[in-house]
Simulated scan of single mutants.
Amino acid sequence: MFTNRFALVAMVLWIATVAVFAWFFVRGNTTAGTDGRTAVVLAPAERDLVLGEMRGLLSASQQVVLGIRQGDMKLVAKSARAAGMASAADVNPALMAKLPVAFKSLGMSVHRDMDDLALAAESGKGQADLLGMLSDTMSKCVACHSAWQLQPVQ
């Protein structure tokens, strides 16, 4: 009888722990933003890291546009690949836990899009196709910046 109660309590505690972890994984460390967007609350160093990654994506996008304009598909592929999934491989799990799942999904899809753009440039896709792919990717950037702001811990 004692064993059954112990097992029941252990099971309830396990389920509660998983539920709390899932809640934080989906929601992240967020609060209401100052301008109607959702604020993702991060330590200053984490905020700097995320903002640095965003600047890297913007810089890569500018280089992709330059490569397309110059007809330099090697530059397009190199620049896009620099912002692909490999650049997101070493992200700290503690930081990832603080980001809402929708934020993570958009971010990872942008990195995958950049890898796809590199492959398209290498396979000989035309300038219009490459610009269309970049435009679609950048619409995700706009959606993300419209939905969230990064706020340092206060």
Rank of each mutant, 00 (worst) to 15 (best):
V76R: 04
A77M: 08
A77I: 08
A77G: 10
A77H: 07
K78H: 12
S79C: 10
R81K: 15
R81T: 02
R81A: 15
R81P: 00
R81N: 10
A82H: 05
A82V: 01
A82S: 15
A82Q: 05
A83W: 01
G84T: 03
G84K: 03
G84V: 00
G84H: 06
M85H: 05
M85G: 12
A86E: 15
A86W: 04
S87Y: 06
S87C: 04
S87K: 12
A88W: 06
A88C: 12
A89W: 00
A89C: 00
D90N: 15
D90C: 05
V91K: 05
P93V: 02
P93D: 10
P93A: 13
A94H: 09
A94M: 13
L95P: 01
M96N: 10
M96W: 07
M96A: 15
A97S: 14
A97L: 15
A97K: 09
K98E: 03
K98M: 11
K98R: 15
L99Q: 11
L99H: 10
L99C: 12
P100G: 09
P100R: 03
V101G: 04
A102W: 04
A102S: 14
A102F: 06
A102L: 12
F103H: 14
F103N: 04
S105D: 09
S105K: 06
L106W: 04
G107Q: 08
G107I: 08
G107K: 06
M108Q: 12
S109I: 03
S109F: 01
S109L: 06
V110Q: 13
H111R: 11
H111K: 06
R112T: 07
R112C: 02
R112I: 06
R112M: 13
R112F: 07
D113H: 07
D113Y: 00
D113T: 02
M114T: 02
M114W: 00
M114G: 02
D115P: 00
D115M: 03
D115K: 07
D116N: 14
L117F: 11
L117I: 15
L117Q: 07
A120H: 04
A120M: 11
